[in-house]
């Protein structure tokens, strides 16, 4: 294969992977935007999403789209529950308490899952025909098309909700200035709940899609993608929605290029090297304004 073609091929692979990161990163960034919490349990929410999808397909025998919907609803409710039980009581506590709680929730979800579904990895069933489309020498497979299609649709819906609906406006207002939003009549508790529902259901979709893409899921599968998506959110500028999408895509492409042209062993190192570079040179991220806010 020619170099330019190989480059394009890695681009396709990178955008697929990057879409997954973007879906997870959106939740990180939305939750950070509204309660200034790096929700370290978010990767595990994604894992639960993958399992809910898995059981919907294998036990309830539904096809991929209903499985995605079921997973979004169940995982969205789980995210809401986590916020109500674990984070809400700490709303006025020092930020470090809630951060430590998030790490606790993360372990809880990982080990509770091991207890209930066993630590053994599960083989995700084949839900779409194993087709591959050839464009010249480029190959794009069915799973990649599914990931891209679903991601695009979800981004469009999310953009509509956030930009046009009353609830979306309330979310943006509360992210910018919770107190003043309350003076407008916005119920901050409701908006926070809603944000966790949306963020968690996007992560659920990512979980199911990863199952479809890599065929394997396990209770600790959320750790690495969770960290990567966090890097993506920081890269784009934490709290900024388009930043999370661009950050996820950039990260996915860089990882694909590194594994395609150098070695896949350096893939993860590349992601964290990016985090360090961003924190050193543009801590506010690609889309962030350069403020001196202490985080």
């Amino acid at each position: 294969m020619e170099l330019s073609q190989q480059l394009l091929q890695q681009l396709i692979n990178g955008i697929s992977l990057g879409s997954i990161y973007a879906l997870i990163a959106l939740g990180y960034t939305m939750i950070y935007g509204i309660i200034k919490l790096i929700n370290f349990a978010h990767g595990d929410i994604y894992m639960v999403g993958a399992y809910v999808g898995f059981f919907a397909i294998t036990q309830a025998q539904v096809s991929i789209l209903p499985a995605l919907l079921i997973s979004m609803v169940v995982t969205g409710l789980l995210g809401m529950l986590v916020e109500k039980l674990a984070y809400k009581p700490l709303r006025h506590a020092p930020r470090i308490s809630i951060l430590i709680t998030a790490i606790g929730v993360s372990f809880f979800l990982e080990y509770a899952s091991m207890y209930f579904v066993s630590p053994t990895p599960r083989t995700f069933p084949e839900v779409i025909d194993n087709v591959a489309f050839h464009v010249g020498d480029l190959v794009i497979n069915g799973q990649q098309l599914l990931i891209l299609g679903i991601t695009v649709v979800l981004m469009a819906i999310l953009t509509y909700i956030v930009q046009k609906t009353k609830l979306g406006k309330a979310m943006r207002a509360a992210s910018f200035d919770t107190e003043t939003a309350q003076l407008m009549g916005v119920n901050a508790d409701q908006v926070i709940s809603f944000t966790f529902v949306i963020g968690s259901s996007l992560a659920a979709v990512a979980g199911v899609l990863v199952g479809v893409y890599y065929n394997s899921i396990d209770p600790l599968m959320g750790i690495m993608p969770g960290l990567k998506a966090f890097v993506a959110a920081v890269l784009g500028g934490i709290g900024i929605l388009p930043g999370a999408v661009v950050g996820g895509l950039v990260l996915g492409v860089i990882e694909a290029l590194v594994s395609g042209f150098i070695s896949s062993t350096f893939r993860d190192a590349a992601a964290f090297a990016i985090l360090i570079l961003v924190l050193l040179f543009k801590p506010s991220g690609l889309f962030g304004k350069n403020t001196n806010e202490k985080v």
Partner: peptide
């Protein structure tokens, strides 16, 4: 305490949130 990142119109719409 206006919502600086939103438009003037959106600020007024939020005023009518209730």
């Amino acid at each position: 305490r206006i919502f600086a990142e939103m438009t003037v119109l959106e600020n007024l719409e939020l005023g009518a949130f209730i």
